[in-house]
Amino acid sequence: MKEVAITSGRMNHGVDPLLHAWGWEIPLYLFLGGLVAGILFFSAFFYLRHRENVFTAAIKVAPLYTPVFLAIGLAALFLDLSHKLYFWRLYTTIRWESPMSWGAWTLLFIFPLSVIWAAFWVKDVYPNWDWKFPIIEKTIAWLAQFKKWFAWSLILFSGILGMYTGILLSAFNARPFWNTSILGPLFLVSGLSTGAAFILLISRSEQERHRFSQIDSFLIGTELFLIIHMFMGFLASTSVQIHAAEMFLGGPYTAIFWTFVVGIGLLLPLLIEIMELRGVTVPAVIPAMLVLFGGLMLRFVVVDAGQSSRWLYKFMEQLVF
């Protein structure tokens, strides 16, 4: 028998009984980061494969949204800071050991990249677009010479962005549920998958949609594999991680995770996409929306569950006397 009691009434706001460092801002930001990474990756990738005329939505239209998504994500990130006026401190140092730090720097690069990349395509999508200032027009034209190099750096940075959103959490060894190396790949794949789904959503081309359905199905399959793998890893690990996994296997997160993330967010769209690939026509918006929804839920659930899992004093409410 072991009884643990916290007798001085420790109940630090935001820490006890459950850690509540991060609310909706961080999961939203992680979702948008992943989504942007996915879009930019596909855009750059297929651009380099010279599919400009086939995958218009992926290469030209989707990137136009990315600066907006990133801006929203950054705004969410900023809102989350509790000492906002000091945010510039992020850029007075580079801390390689801190995913937060290199995330901040990645954003510093990828945001302008996404703006420039979008600028390259604006006129393709909106032929009547007018930049108003000739200097902008000229700059873009000058930069366009290096389009290929921009595409390569986008592949690099979107990869970093995608990975980072997962690694950010898994760097926190203190939270048993995040303490798994699978979180990085999982978020990367989920980011790509939501990126593909977004392209699917806005694509007007049958061929493009077919291709992205295929890609998405593959990514969803990978995600499912990673999730199963993750739980098997937890269950074979230390007691704190087993406890973390149990939150999803009969614990408080079971219903929400298996229904919304896995069921509605992964299995259902996978089923629909397979049906579609087999020729049954379902409006592509449906699986696409489901995947986006699933991706968002995944971030929310993982961020929340991670904060609910701790090393010491796991059932704080019952311990405080």
């Binding site: 820490v15 460092a21 000492h83 906002k84 000091y86 992020l90 760097a171 203190a174 010491l312 004093y313």
Partner: peptide
Amino acid sequence: SCIGCKACIASCPYD
């Protein structure tokens, strides 16, 4: 210097 990102809070196993 603290921006209040709370990364450190999440990272402390001792809360």
